[in-house]
C-alpha cells in the first residue's frame, strides 16, 4: 500500500475580533483596521482536515470517515460553532484568533486523537479568498 491522503470538510460559524493585548487601541486599530471593530464581526469558516498515511491492508481505510467526522464534530465544531472565539474559547483568551492561529489550535485539539503513524494537516478558510494551512507542508 502507498501513502494516501484523506480529507474531510466541515463548517462552523463564529464571531471574533483581531487584537494584540500588549498594544494600545491606536496601534491595534492601525494594524488590524476593521477587524479590530469592538463589537466583533464574524465568518463562515470552512475546515478541511487532512490525514496522510498508509491505508489498512484489510479495510482499505486510512481512517473511517464517520469516525473522523465525529471526532471533528466533538473536538472542533461543538467547541467553536456559533461561539465568540475571543470570549468563549479558552485558547483565544490571550492568543489572537487569526485564521493562522485558529488552524493551529484546531490541529492541537485533534492531534492527540490520531495515531502517531498518521500525519495531520489543517486547512481553514475564513472567507472564500483567505485560508491558512497548518502545518505549512505535510
Amino acid at each position: 500500500m502507498h501513502q494516501t491522503a484523506l480529507y474531510r470538510t466541515e463548517h462552523f460559524n463564529a464571531a471574533h475580533r483581531l487584537l494584540c493585548h500588549d498594544w494600545n487601541e491606536e496601534k491595534n486599530r492601525t494594524v488590524f483596521g476593521k477587524c479590530f471593530s469592538p463589537n466583533y464581526h464574524g465568518h463562515n469558516y470552512k475546515l478541511t482536515v487532512g490525514l496522510k498515511g498508509i491505508p489498512d491492508a484489510q479495510t482499505g481505510y486510512l481512517a473511517d470517515t464517520k469516525w473522523l467526522s465525529a471526532l471533528i464534530q466533538r473536538q472542533v465544531i461543538d467547541y467553536m460553532d456559533h461561539r465568540n472565539l475571543n470570549l468563549d474559547i479558552e485558547e483565544f483568551k490571550i492568543l489572537n484568533p487569526t485564521v493562522e492561529n485558529i488552524a493551529c489550535v484546531i490541529y492541537n485539539r485533534l492531534r492527540p486523537f490520531i495515531e502517531n503513524t498518521i500525519d495531520l494537516k489543517i486547512e481553514l478558510y475564513e472567507t472564500e479568498r483567505n485560508r491558512a494551512e497548518y502545518p505549512a507542508t505535510w
Binding site: 463564529a14 464571531a15 464574524g42 465568518h43 461561539r83 465568540n84 470570549l87 472564500e128
Partner: peptide, 12 residues
C-alpha cells in the same frame, strides 16, 4: 438555540 449565544457568532 445556539443562534441566541449571548457573546454573538458570525457569518460571511
Amino acid at each position: 438555540g445556539k443562534c441566541a449565544n449571548a457573546n454573538w457568532h458570525g457569518h460571511n
